[in-house]
Every structure is written in structure tokens, then in C-alpha cells.
Design a protein around this nucleic acid. Structure first.
Lengths: 335, 335
DNA sequence: CTGAAAGCGCTTACAG
DNA sequence: CTGAAAGCGCTTACAG
């Protein structure tokens, strides 16, 4: 394993000069010595030691992606949920493109985040699904840039807390997505709408979708809240649909819509979309396979934006709400 | 940020002694000083710097999980495929339980693996889906323990290469899974069997399942090879089933089986399992929702075994082939 | 049971 | 444009 020091000795220069070449500080090194060192680097397969770099105070290249969804049991597999898996995959791709490295971790507390940051002198954090309630604590105990995904923080909150570090918020127009779904269903002639989610905390993604649903529907329908989703909820949906008390359902996830469809297919003779229209959320690949109408979100764009914020951009504060888009397919009656 | 040195000064001992306490070398420290230091650690929220630890030559706590599937295009999202996502999730959980940290990375070459190892002085590597052809090169350029998942390496190969590092092989009985699927289908009265996969390289998981399928079937059926899976393949399956030239299909993934089922549901009047039996592979959660007969594998067990091999076990060489299990559900005719 | 010394492989000011 | 010095926060032999 060749070190920077050895490189310097072989080139007949100081370690400093080698360091300057390696870090592209071209203004500080003559072209001649630079070329000499660069030749040596490729020839000897020099690989920098990131631990030494971080320790010496250089910019760390480590980004931690943290799952902090509140409603998760310890045994549950947070990173295998389709949306999370897609996000991780997109983040990995973006982090790699930005010449950084990605640590993946599920945490149960703010303390663990602070610990992780100190353990590795992180360059930045991507925190997914954290409830806004923890915001103040995180911003106080963390001093590197943070990108929040699916934590809807307002400019006012941020101003109140006045974070010392750079903070990026990458939210999704959850309410707008639910509204678009309701609009599509009403346009297709739906009279009795329902809403189906996994679980509703006061602050989570699903509650914002529910809020949008309620707002869009106002007094024209009788919402069905089913929590958590499962056989009982599906049975309720089936019974109501069979008794003409329900003819359209907005769900908070493609997975949920698919589960419902599978249940109805196995246990009832209800026809989709004739007897019951169903809208998913996320537009996962399998939604297309199943010809499912759904609310699409651009996960790749959010991942790229978050990584760009942490690695390239110099914006001190960034608040974004990404738009969603209704994808009309075969599980809803056409307008 | 409090350092080990500060801790030592406050306790009135040398840094060495603090280090010994932090690393549980209880035989080298008196109970009294140990307690004093431990109190200080919690009181001052001391957090060790992993970069410094690694640099100084202590065991690194970083494990890199590497995706090295050959057939992947650069744009494809390797970590969002259901099996990979489940594996990542299980690995994260196991790594965390073992008090280690997990780096996630997709690579296109052996060089990148070696680079990663040197960059971070890794404690170990988990390499997923690598073709055995790269084995010699990896073992030559890497000098930390490696756990291979879904790379079927034999004891003979390993003996020939005589790796200097610890090597663990965590394979799956892919052929056995396909055989079990064929047996189930034949027991259910199937006469014309087919096989459906995404793509078949000479060495991948799918080719081993295909080999098992062929072996089990011998001359009694006419295999249908469709690569890559897609509308054309599904259309072929549909046409053959409608013309009574196909009454059962073994697939290499639940996702594929689900796609096929969705296609048949949308485009044909074929009934499953009456007209066509379908067997999935993996037993992902949605297979249960869809009442899909499938070949189950225990991803959690493999992840745990791999992480245990890298972090706890002292076994120099470990070769395992995990058994699979056929889960009988509603998409196959009952025996 | 305890410690003084040296070093891991880098980078940061600071001089020239 | 180049370098000697000091240091990042730890751990490893080695003495006592």
C-alpha cells in the first residue's frame, strides 16, 4: 500500500506538494511537478486513505442516509419498503456520481444521529421520514449539512430555530397528490369515496395525504378511515362496495392498492374499475404492470437534489416541495 | 467534542489507560480507575472517532456491501429490486446489531472493490451477485474477509486459489428450488411446463435455477425460454396456454410471476391455476398478498450468517448453501 | 496495573 | 511555486 509520503520521496518533493496535486490545487504547483506526481500516482496505484484525510481535517466524503420513521417496530425492515428501496438506490447512484460514499443506517433516536456524525466526521446527512417534532433537537446536536426527505419543514420553523448548519428540505406535494386523485375519481363519476392508508401519525406522509383528501372532498363524500390496513380494512371496503356505499378508494401507496386489489380479486366478484375505482401512490414499477392509476413522484429527482445540496451547492437554506402527477391507467373509470 | 486525551487528563491517567477501558481490556485496568473513566465517558458524552481508530490500526468497524451484478446497466436501480432491497435491509439490521457500520455501493469492476477497501480500511466486504469469473482477481486484490452472496464458489476453487483472507460463501439452493417447483407442478397434473426468467448469463442465479428446472424435467416437458421477460414473452406464454401447449410456468422471481399474472389478467381470460399454474421465487411479502405459490428463501438468515462471519466468527473458510422451501398457495393446482 | 513514546496517513496554517 | 513543522484522535508495541 503506497502512501502519500512515499510518493513525495519518489518524486523528490514535499508531502505538501503531493497533497496539493491530489487535491487539484493547480495554482499552487508547477505543471512539471504536477505531471511527475500524477504519473507516479497512476503508476503506483496510489489510493488515498479517507480515514487519514477526515482526521486531518479535510472535507469528509462520507454521507449518512438515515431512516427515522417513527412508527416502525424494531423488527420491521425499513429499507425494503418499495419507496425506501427506490430512494436508497437513487441516493447511492447520486452519491457515487458525486464522488462520495454512503453509509446507511436506521436509528431510533436523535442521539444516534449525533453519535453517527461524530463517529465518522460526516460530510452530511440525509434524514428520511423524520417527524418535525425532532427538528429542533437534530439541528442543535448536528453541525453538518442536513437534507430532510419527507419531513415538511416550513421557512418559519427554520427561521425560528436559526440553524447554524446548512439545511435542505425536500418535501413532496402529498396533499396535492391526494387532491389530484380525488379530482380524477369525481371526474370519473365517483359518488362514494374512501381513503385507505397504513397508519396515520399526526405528522407523517400519510396524514398529509389524508388532509389533502379531506380538503378536496369537503362535504361531498363520506371518508372511510382504515388503520392499520389489513384484512379487516379490506373486508370493510369490499362490503361497502358490494352494498353501493363505496365506489372509489384513494390509497397512500401502490403496495396498499395492490394488496387491496389482490384481496378483492380473491374474495369478491367486484370489478375494477366498474364497481370500484382505485388510485395508488408512488408509481412503483409494478403499478405499470398492473395498469394501476396512481400518483407519481419523481424519486430520482429528489435524491439528486438532496445529494447535490450536500455535496455541490453552496445554498445555505433550501426548501422545496416537489410536484406530483396523476398517472391515468386502468383502475379508475375514465372521465 | 471531547477527546480521549481530554478524558485522560480529567481522570489523571494516561491516554493508554483510557484506551484500554474503552476497548474493554479489563484485565489491564484496575476496577477503580475503570469506573472513574466510565463515569467520565457517560458524563461528557464521549464519542470515539472511528477515523482515528482505523488510522491507528484498530479493527475497523466499516463493512461495505457491494452490488456486483454483471448484467446491470448503469442506469438501472440495483438496490431497489425487491430481493436486493430485502437483503440490504437485513444486512443493515445485522450490521447494526454487531456494532458495525455499513457502506453501500454498486461497482462495475474489481478495481473499484480494491479501491474501496483501501479508501476506508474496511473490516470486511459483502459482495452480492458477482460472477465466479472475477473470483481470483477479487481474492488477489482484497486482503480483508469477504462474504459472497449468490456467488456459488466450490471448495475446490477456493483450495486452488488458496486465498490469504477469510472467505465466506453464502449460496442458495437455486437448482433445488426449481426442482421443487417442477415437482409441485407435476404432482398437480401439469403436462406442459415452461420456464420464465429475466436474463440468463452463464453464471447467474437464474441460470442455476434453469439448470435445476431442466434436470427435474428431463424429457417430460418442452421448456420455454424467454429472455428478457417482457410483453413478448408474456404474449407467448398466453398464446401457448390458450392453445393447450403450456399449463404451468416456473419463474425466477415473484416479481416476474406477478407481472405475468397481471398481463394474463388484463389480456386473456385464462384462469389461474386452472388453465395455467404459476410458481414464483423468493416469497416476497406481496407473494402472500397475491396467494402466490412460490419458492421461499430465508434472506434474513443469510444476511445474519454473512455479517456474523465478518464480525464475530473466526472460521477461516465457510461454504454454505441455504435450503429453499416451496410454499404452496393458490396459483398452482393442488396435488 | 500504568505510562512515555512513536506512529497511523493525511492536511492545515505559516514561511519563504 | 515549494517546504518544514505541527497536529488531527486514536492505538500499538514496549517498559516498568
Amino acid at each position: 500500500m503506497v502512501t502519500l509520503k512515499e510518493l513525495a520521496q519518489l518524486a523528490g518533493v514535499s508531502t505538501m506538494t503531493v497533497s496539493n496535486v491530489l487535491n487539484q490545487r493547480t495554482d499552487k504547483v508547477s505543471p512539471a511537478t504536477r505531471e511527475k506526481i500524477e504519473a507516479l500516482v497512476t503508476q503506483l496505484h496510489y489510493v488515498p486513505n479517507q480515514n487519514a484525510r477526515s482526521l486531518a481535517g479535510a472535507d469528509s466524503l462520507l454521507i449518512a442516509v438515515i431512516d427515522y420513521t417513527e412508527t416502525v417496530e424494531d423488527t420491521q425492515l425499513v429499507f425494503s419498503a418499495p419507496f425506501m428501496a427506490a430512494l436508497i438506490s437513487e441516493l447511492e447512484s447520486a452519491v457515487r456520481a458525486a464522488h462520495h460514499f454512503m453509509l446507511v443506517r436506521h436509528v431510533n433516536s436523535v442521539e444516534e444521529i449525533a453519535l453517527l456524525q461524530q463517529n465518522w466526521q460526516l460530510a452530511g446527512l440525509v434524514i428520511v421520514g423524520m417527524a418535525p417534532a425532532y427538528l429542533a433537537k437534530v439541528l442543535a446536536s448536528v453541525h453538518v449539512p442536513v437534507a430532510f426527505i419527507d419531513t415538511p419543514i416550513t421557512a418559519i420553523e427554520l427561521k425560528t430555530l436559526a440553524p447554524k448548519q446548512r439545511v435542505g428540505v425536500f418535501a413532496l406535494d402529498d396533499a396535492g397528490g391526494a387532491k389530484a386523485a380525488v379530482a380524477e375519481l369525481l371526474a370519473g363519476g365517483a359518488k362514494h369515496l374512501g381513503f385507505l392508508g397504513y397508519s396515520f401519525t399526526a405528522t407523517g406522509v400519510e396524514s398529509r395525504r389524508l388532509a389533502g383528501y379531506r380538503e378536496a372532498l369537503q362535504a361531498s363524500g363520506e371518508p372511510v378511515y382504515v388503520l392499520p390496513a389489513g384484512e379487516a380494512a379490506f373486508a370493510t371496503v369490499a362490503w361497502r362496495a358490494e352494498h353501493h356505499q363505496l365506489d372509489a378508494v384513494v390509497t397512500t401507496a401502490d403496495t396498499l392498492a395492490a394488496q387491496l386489489m389482490a384481496y378483492l380479486h380473491a374474495h369478491t366478484r367486484l370489478k375494477i374499475p366498474q364497481d370500484l375505482s382505485i388510485v395508488g401512490f408512488d408509481d412503483q414499477p409494478f403499478a405499470a404492470w398492473m395498469e394501476m392509476t396512481t400518483v407519481a413522484q419523481d424519486t430520482a429527482a429528489r435524491a439528486l437534489a438532496a445529494v447535490d445540496f450536500l455535496t455541490v451547492s453552496k445554498t445555505p437554506l433550501l426548501l422545496t416541495t416537489q410536484p406530483v402527477k396523476l398517472i391515468r391507467r386502468g383502475t379508475t373509470r375514465q372521465p
